[in-house]
């Protein structure tokens, strides 16, 4: 397993662990899950989850970036990109 793949899984795992408490309908979380549409969480709750991610990885994810993200996979990719830029 390459370093990136391993990191990818860790980030994915982190995100799903933060989203799980909000997953009231018990949807199976995959990279393709549409965070707002499939989980029926509101946009502010998503911003709050992102704030936890920011503090966990010590990065800043601008609100503008979040509003372009739909799926968990896109969020994982955005975090990787920002981690690279901000490290």
């Amino acid at each position: 397993m390459s370093g990136i793949q391993e990191d990818d899984d860790l980030v994915f795992h982190k995100i799903t662990s933060l989203l799980e408490p909000l997953n009231e309908k018990g949807v199976k979380l995959t990279r393709e899950t549409d965070i707002i549409a499939d989980l029926e969480i509101d946009s502010v709750s998503l911003l709050d989850v992102v704030m936890d991610i920011e503090d966990n990885y010590d990065i800043s994810i601008p609100v503008n970036t979040i509003s372009e993200i739909k799926t968990i996979g896109e969020l994982v990719d955005a975090i990787h990109k920002i981690k690279k830029e901000q490290s």
Partner: peptide, 9 residues
């Protein structure tokens, strides 16, 4: 404004 916006707690 269109500028990058960061939220804090």
């Amino acid at each position: 404004s269109g500028a990058e916006t960061v939220r804090f707690r």
